[in-house]
């Protein structure tokens, strides 16, 4: 009696959550098994795994996977390494520290689209960008970043966007580091570097794990920066999975193949998450 009432009362939220998840997922699965091209309406016959075959044999497929993983790993490494270094640097009190902190955090508040536009037009433009101006001042040929190093450019933008997040987490974590432990280490003969290496880094293991996991979720689905700046090109040089799916669905009007790509992205995300959590999760239990 009592149990059935509990179940009854819980039912609405459980059902809502189920519907919320199941409906889009099953629709995606359904779409991925039928022929569903907006250019040929009405011809929605069952095609089995053909959409998957199309997606995986697409010339953009392998580059997209490669680019997705390169983007993910590069940005993770850049933000974690630079984030730890910068946070440690601004951990000691100095004149104007609070202003420096605000400045370091502020890129996080800029929308991805705006971020990409700033980098594309103000920084990387080969004619009037800041980088071009620097190159010319130093007497070098300006680099056309977006066409010569498309993926590198995207990595730069995304790192700039996500570095503040890492710094925010690390600065907070550093403030919770026990000063007496550092003093004890100093008395034990440790230099600043020894303290950083043997006390600060292990202290940051958990925050690093958190940053890696959260960033992974967002970095696997980077889209706006690519869309605004390189458009996935030249060729497939800066196309990632998210952009490839968009390409299929909206540029080639093939919802079926796009759905298959979406499912593939879910699988890839799970594989990446599995390895990352295994690698990083060890630190979480320390």
């Amino acid at each position: 009696m009592k149990r059935s009432i509990t179940r009854l009362l819980m039912a609405p939220s459980v059902i809502l959550l189920l519907v919320w998840m199941i409906v889009p997922l099953s629709m995606t699965i359904y779409f991925s098994t039928i022929r569903y091209n907006l250019l040929y309406p009405g011809q929605n016959n069952f095609v089995g795994l053909m959409n998957f075959e199309f997606f995986m044999t697409d010339p953009g497929f392998l580059p997209a996977i490669f680019n997705t993983l390169t983007l993910l790993l590069s940005v993770l490494i850049i933000t974690v390494v630079l984030g730890v270094a910068l946070s440690a640097l601004i951990d000691k009190p100095f004149f104007g520290r609070s202003i420096v902190r605000v400045l370091l955090i502020s890129p996080f508040f800029i929308m991805p689209t705006v971020n990409a536009l700033i980098w594309k037009n103000m920084m990387m433009n080969p004619v009037y960008g800041v980088f071009a101006w620097i190159s010319q001042t130093l007497g070098f040929e300006p680099i056309d970043w977006l066409s010569d190093f498309p993926l590198g450019s995207v990595i730069m933008m995304v790192s700039w966007q996500w570095l503040p997040f890492a710094i925010l987490v690390f600065v907070t974590a550093l403030q919770s580091q026990d000063t007496e432990q550092k003093e004890a280490a100093a008395m034990d003969g440790a230099t600043s570097w020894d303290i950083f290496r043997y006390l600060t880094i292990p202290h940051l293991a958990r925050p690093i794990a958190v940053v890696v996991m959260i960033e992974t979720i967002f970095l696997l689905a980077i889209f706006a920066e690519i869309f605004v700046s390189t458009g996935g090109g030249p060729g497939y040089d800066s196309t990632n999975l998210a952009y490839l799916i968009y390409n299929q669905a909206l540029l080639q009007y093939d919802v079926g193949v796009a759905s298959a790509g979406g499912l593939f992205a879910v699988i890839l995300a799970n594989i990446v998450a599995f390895f990352l959590i295994r690698a990083v999760g060890k630190n979480l239990t320390v």
């Binding site: 026990d178 007496e180 432990q181 003093e183 004890a184 280490a185 100093a186 008395m187 034990d188 003969g189 440790a190 230099t191 043997y198 006390l199 292990p202 202290h203 293991a205 320390v286």
Partner: peptide, 17 residues
């Protein structure tokens, strides 16, 4: 670090990891 003194803190300040 160069004074060759050792200190025992009230909080013990052991290295936690």
């Amino acid at each position: 670090s160069k004074r060759d003194l050792a200190m025992v803190f009230q909080s013990y300040a052991l290295y936690p990891h």
